[in-house]
Nucleic acid binder design. Sequence first.
DNA 1: ACCTGAACACCGTTCAAGT
DNA 2: ACCTGAACACCGTTCAAGT
Lengths: 175, 175
Amino acid sequence: MSDVKTAIMDAAERRMQLGGFGGFSFREIAADVGIKSSSVHYHFPTKENLAAAVIRRWAEETSKSIDEQLEKDPDPVRVWTKAFRGTALSEGRMCPCTVLGAASRDLPPEVATEVKGFFKMCLDKLVAAGLSASNAAEVLSTITGALVVANALGDTAAYDRATADLLRQRDVAVA
Amino acid sequence: MSDVKTAIMDAAERRMQLGGFGGFSFREIAADVGIKSSSVHYHFPTKENLAAAVIRRWAEETSKSIDEQLEKDPDPVRVWTKAFRGTALSEGRMCPCTVLGAASRDLPPEVATEVKGFFKMCLDKLVAAGLSASNAAEVLSTITGALVVANALGDTAAYDRATADLLRQRDVAVA
DNA sequence: ACCTGAACACCGTTCAAGT
DNA sequence: ACCTGAACACCGTTCAAGT
């Protein structure tokens, strides 16, 4: 992957974390990278294509990162809660799949498919770690929603309040 | 409020439930209502203004609807879980505050304020019904996230799986 | 009081043209 | 292989003009 291609994806990802699919333009990305907007199309034919590539990369990196954390901490709920918390508010690192997932019905097909794949991956990994299907859905929903609520309130502490019970239950289960 | 004004808000709301702030245009709304896009500006000077009005109305109607349901069912968790479920997937009735809340950092100030007000209202009502601040945040986050996950997966059943435990705990508590 | 058409700078996309 | 400028139909917004 060329440097330019990576730089384009980085710029797109940063903006998608704030405003989703409608939250970035080819002309802005081009200015970030230092080329013209028509040159962006050389690397990514369409906006759909670019957004899908960014989400696919995010899903792969999240998957890898979770595996690494699970080696240090065997509790999947704690690991996932921490991982999602890292994308909250500060520095605008909001999980782009959460931003896009909320508007999923209005996304181009290729992008919607990648976002769907991300959440499937999350559920699969939680189930593989021993949770029931319904417990996995509950945990994933709580941390996803906590991100949305904290983002809307502009208050990171809301994420911690929302997930406190989730973690308490695990402490009991582990103890 | 004039009929035209209401028709504009209805059209905007429908489209915001799918694609958020970037998911509708003045020209589309105008076509829906049967006027020209420059006429929409007569009723709502800016897009920010229109979106904020839609969210404010949604918050007021939700608040009223919740109060009505609480008279029939005293369990706030059951009432809120049902209310949010009603906005899932089918018919594109996705809660617009959840769609906008996920992209809150990139919203015009007036809109961001209204979205924040919606989630504050939800938390306030849950606390007024007897929940602790942290339990209220957890319940609200779980149903909000369940909406996002179900939306992304294109699977309403995911909402029910995600909230099953929430409702089970209440049954135990009530019993 | 309410609507309109024309204009502005923006947007994604295409394409012929350059190196 | 990679970049560009010009063009297209779109976007929010403004405004002078109509009734």
